[in-house]
Every structure is written in structure tokens, then in C-alpha cells.
Design a binder for these strands. Structure first.
Lengths: 199, 199, 199, 199
DNA sequence: AAGTAAACGAGACGGTACGTCCGGTCTTGGT
DNA sequence: ACCAAGACCGGACGTACCGTCTCGTTTACTT
């Protein structure tokens, strides 16, 4: 017995959905996150405002979905990290790539916007964890697990914790702008994590 | 030579300033960050809107100052961490206290509000680092330096990095709600940091 | 030969038609004319909006038909006014009845709704004259004609004009709320008309 | 002690008030009454919507005031009807003028619109009586009183009733489109009224 | 002490966007 | 084929705030 408040999604217009997400993406790039309004999205997408309110609970949710659609189309489904057998080299590669990504001004604004939204919206945060963070984290944990089996990491290491030690300092430094994000910084974090979780 | 656009702060009404900061604090706790508006702050403080716009450049700045006033009144000037000689025990104490603070629902809403503002405003972020984070970080680094001299930490350890490894995972977990904040988690982070920066 | 845009009325659901008219009546009485919407009528009648748009050209037409149905069911076909031979007494009776009807709050709202529609819609006004006003007016004129033959009214009196002098002041006073509608007022109007059209 | 909900009209912008009334008048002529929206008035007047909502309780009230401003600027304050000493001639003149006015298509739409609004809005009806109808009615009654003193009308005639007998049939015929408005019709009404209220 | 200039409370102003409601059209399944 | 249900585009509604702009009124510093 479905919730009778929920619209029947079988009737949903895929055409409108796509137009809304596309318009949202375009507007974020053009005018910046803070100035994106439901009104503007609807006008740009050639859609009634009600069609947005019918399917999304908040502006944050629309914007989030536009991110999600982007990452899905780009990332494909199964993400795999390189595995050369040398965990240190592989992690350095991945961490340096992450540093580069955060430094890219094209990504900077949207990601900050997303984080600002997530801070105050638990639902959005949950969606972020499930839909955006999890697939990537799973891939990283797969690589770490392979390193455990190869005896390069402590067998009892909590992989979620390993990920936090690797990424959280980077994330916080970026979010609060407490310092520069350099390739050397990425290397330092890899060193620290490997030392902490050495077998 | 002061900027002639700048109002003469000698004429500033301390009474109004206090009322605005107090009203801001109250509103954040009561109705949440999203619903705090300049209009509401002015009404609550019994103040004209212009008085806010005269002295603060943005809503974020008001919110930030309301924090600053709080921390200044509470924290005093010179913060010192306990130093029993046992760095592990001392860090556990401090980290457990931090965990408790983040878990306190009374602090939760304001801190999230502050972070939402900081993410998208570099000026505010800089003020945050200087006025709010630095004094606390300095105190923590002083304790870590004492541990270095006692041979409990590598002499060449970058103390900023140590702080990041200790606190960033905690901060990220709280911000993204990726997991529970428990005393055990605090202990884990201490263990990891000490292992990574062991002499 | 029906207009080929007109749906085949042989297929029309009598059940839906009744439900729509009944819902319209109920809504006018309950929430007042301003809040009657096609949307609300459809919901109340358990009918799709399209079913209303298929059979009626405008909201006014639906409202009008809801009246028509009522008057047809109530009024029967042949209306006859009392004829005691004394035109003054008979008119007083009828006029006092009309005053009472207008003063009845149960009739007030629907009649006002009907008039609001009629004012701006010539088609509706024509229908009103033909379907609602004419039968009643014919009956009144029959009684007046009988009075003419009895020598109680000028033989050359324009009966439409007599009706206007009788009823228009009453109608205008009600429509614009310019004064109270009392039995004495009804009597005055009868006096005036009889004096004006005396043989 | 004034009602503290009422805005302080000493602060009111006369410039905005005029712009709103002028825009309203223009829009009624251009797009017709039903399609006039607060949104369009505000845009046309170069005014925020709130400025309209602050000073008028409803769309009907704005439209009414735009009529009022027009009639005040046109009619001046003291209206006087011609008094040649011959009440029949004077009334015929005035009634024929009224007939012509009702027949003028430029007046037709707005007056119908106003009436449609008045039917369902008692407050508006009261304003109509006080501000628009009364000054004109007072002038008419002054002329009738002069006729009474000249012995051309019954001394005890209720002048409000006389006005109703004169004007209501005309008004009703126009409103419901029950017949043509001709100069002869105007004359008939004068005859009838004079006969009914003969001394 | 009087004069003056800035800050003050109040709140109207032109605007933008909100989230809701309804009009009228179109589509989908069910009978 | 008609129906109920309801999604769709469009557009107006009335509200909340934005940041700016007067109003008179303190308030504090000249003169």
C-alpha cells in the first residue's frame, strides 16, 4: 500500500525531469549557486513551478539530483581504482588527483555549494552519503582490502577509519582554507595513514 | 586616516550591538539557521534594520560576531590545556571533550550555522581561523610541543598536520553525519595520531 | 443537427452531470461564490476536470445550470399567480413573498453568485432571461393583463414597464444594499405602480 | 489611540499612490477588468506588490479607488443639477443623459466590472454608496426637493423612493440587458415617476 | 547651555523569490 | 467512447525578506 500523498511516478514526464536537471546545471554554472532559484529553473526548463515542487521537496534536492545525474552519466556504475600492487604508489596517485580536483576552480563553487546545503539538511546529507560518497568510498575500500590481503595494511584496520585519516584532513583544509593543497601534502597524508595502519 | 564611508564607531550604541548579537544567538537556537533573517534579528532586538546594515556587511558576519562575542566572554584570553606529562591521556581527555561538545544538541545548531556561512565566504573563513580557531589551536600545539620535548612525539612532526589528523576525521564525521561520535572513536583517533607521529 | 464540436450527448453520464450540479450548489452555499473553482467542483463531485470542460464552456455556465436544474425541479412548468380579483391585494402578497425570498440568507449567496456571472456574460444573461426570468414574468404579466381587463390598470400600460417599476427598485436595493427590504417597502412599491398605471 | 495595525499614512508615498491608480485605470481599459492583476498593476506602476497590499485590502478596492479618483477629478465636489423650474423637463434631461452614459461602450465595461465586484463584496458596496452614489443622489434629491417646494411633487414623497422608481428600472434593464435604453424609455420613466408622486 | 551631526527606531519603498492555487490542456488506465 | 484521475504549462496569488531610503527622535560631541 503506497503512501497516497506520493505522486504516481509512472505518470511522470521524463522529458520535464531531464529539462529541469539540465536547466539547473546550466544555471549553477552561469549565475552561481546562491542565485539559483526555483523560479529561474522552471523558466529555463520551460516547465511549471508546480512540476518541480511535485517531485522535489526543496531546492537543495533539485540541485543535488542535478549533481547526481552528472556523476552517474560520467562515472558509470562500477568504479575501480588502479591496483599496481604497491599501495603507497596507488594512494599517492589517487590523493594527488583528489587534491587537483579540489583545486580546480570549475569544481570549487558547486562543491562548496553542495556542502553548505548538506550542513543544515540531514536528508540531503543522507542522500549525499548513499548516492555520491558511497560508490567512491566502496572503490577505495576495495583497494585497501586488497592491500590488507597483501600484508601492506594491518589486517584488523577499520577501513572507514583509514579513509577518514586519508581524506578528512584534506577536506577540512579545503573547506576552511586553512592551508594550501599541494601534491606534497597529498603524499604526507598517505605516509601518515600507512604509518598509522602499518601491520 | 579613516575611510570616510565608515561610520564613526565612537558614536556606536553598545546597547544595540549587544541586543543584535543576543537576538541572533537566540534565533539560531530557536528557529534554526535557515529561518534567521535580518528582519527577524532587527525585530527581536528592537532595532532598526539600518542599524544592522550600518555595522555588518552580511548576515554571515552578524552570525559570526554573535559567536565571537560568546567565545570571548566564555573563553577568556589565555587558554591552556592540561599537561600531566602523559600525552596520550591528555589528548584522550581533550578529544573526548570535543566529541561531547559536538554531540550536544545545544551546540549543534549554532555550529552548523557558522559552518554554512564559512563555506562560501572566504573573508569569514579567514576571520574564523584568526579569531576562533587560532587561540584554541595554539593551546593544543603548545601541549604537543611539550610532548615533542618529552620525546613522546617525533621532533620533526608538523604540528598543524598532527592537529588535522586528530580533529579533521571527527569534524568530517560530524559535518556529514557519516557515523556516531563516541568516546571510543575519540580514543581511536588519539591512537592513530600517536602511532603516525611516533618518534 | 448538432454542432460537430459538441460531444455526443447521448453518451453523456447523467450521474456525473447531476453530481457536478449538486456539488456546485453545495459549494456556493458553503464557501461563497469567490471560492468556487472548477477544481473544487470536480473534487467535490468526484469527477474529472475534463468532464466539466467537455460539457460547459465556463464556470458561469456551470453555476447557471445548477440554478436552472434547481428551479426546474422546484418550479414545475406552469406557474400561476393568485387571482382574487383584487390586484392590489394580490400584488402585495407576491411582492412581500419576493422581499422575503431576497431576505432569506439561504438564497442570498446563490442569487448573488448568479448575478455576478450574469453581469459580465451576455450569453448567460440571455439564458437567464429565457430560462429563469421569462416563465415567472409571463405569469406575472398574465395576472396584470387580467387586472387590465378588470379596469384596475390602464389598458395601454406596457406590462414589461409595470414589472420593472414593481421589481427593479427592490432588486437594486438588494443588490447594492441601499436599504432594508421590509413588507412595508413591498407595499409602497405596489402603491406606486398602481398609482402610476392607474386607468 | 489609533489602531496599531493601520500603516501610518503620513509616510505614504503620494507618487506611488497616483502611479498605482493611473496604471489600474489604463489596464482596465486595455485588457478588460477580469484580466487585471495586482501583478500587472504593480509592474505597470513601477511599484512593489507589497505597496499595493499595504494600502488596499483587495483588488476590488484598488479598482474602486481608481474609479473614485477619476470621478473626483472630473466631478469636482459640489454637483448641482439644472433647475429651470420645470421638473419634468429637467428630469428628462438628466435621465436621457444617464441613458446615454450607460450606452457608451467606454463606460460599459468598467461599470459592469464594478457592479460584478460590488455584488459579492459588502464593504465595497458600502464604499460605492458613500463615495460614488451619494454625492450624485444628493444633488438629485436637492432638485426633487425644490420641485416639492414648487408643488410639482407630493410634499410627503420619500425622495429615496422617487430616485429608485426613476433609476432602478433603467439600471436593471441595462444590467440584465432586458431591453433597449432609448431616450423614449427615459421619458417614460419620468412620466411614471411624476404620475406616481404627483401631489 | 545651545547647537549640531551622527546614530537610532521605525517602517515604507522597489524588488525577487517563495510555495500555493487554479485555469485549461493533455495523457493514461479502467469500464 | 467516455470517464476518473491527475500531470502538465502557465500565471496570479499573497507573504517574507532583501537592501535602500526617508522620517522624526535621541544622544553625545562641539562651540
Amino acid at each position: 500500500m503506497p503512501n497516497d500523498r506520493t505522486p504516481d511516478s509512472s505518470r511522470r514526464s521524463e522529458r520535464s525531469r531531464q529539462a529541469i536537471l539540465e536547466a539547473t546545471r546550466a544555471l549553477i554554472s552561469e549565475v552561481g549557486y546562491r542565485k539559483v532559484s526555483i523560479e529561474a529553473i522552471a523558466a529555463r526548463a520551460g516547465v511549471g513551478k508546480q512540476t518541480i515542487y511535485r517531485w522535489w521537496p526543496s531546492k537543495g534536492a533539485v540541485i543535488f539530483d542535478s549533481f547526481l545525474a552528472l556523476s552517474e552519466s560520467a562515472g558509470g556504475e562500477g568504479i575501480t581504482l588502479p591496483d599496481t600492487g604497491d599501495i603507497e604508489a596507488d594512494l599517492r596517485l589517487v590523493m594527488r588527483a583528489t587534491v587537483a580536483e579540489f583545486a580546480d576552480p570549475a569544481f570549487e563553487k558547486p562543491i562548496r555549494a553542495l556542502n553548505a546545503e548538506i550542513v543544515n539538511d540531514p536528508d540531503l546529507a543522507a542522500q549525499y552519503r548513499e548516492k555520491l560518497a558511497r560508490p567512491v568510498d566502496d572503490a577505495k575500500k576495495a583497494r585497501l582490502r586488497s592491500a590488507q590481503q597483501a600484508g601492506q595494511l594491518a589486517a584488523d584496520a577499520d577501513l572507514d577509519l583509514v579513509l577518514e585519516v586519508l581524506y578528512a584532513p584534506l577536506f577540512q583544509r579545503w573547506l576552511h582554507r586553512t592551508g594550501p593543497l599541494t601534491p606534497e601534502y597529498a603524499d604526507s597524508l598517505v605516509d601518515i595513514a600507512l604509518r598509522a595502519f602499518r601491520p
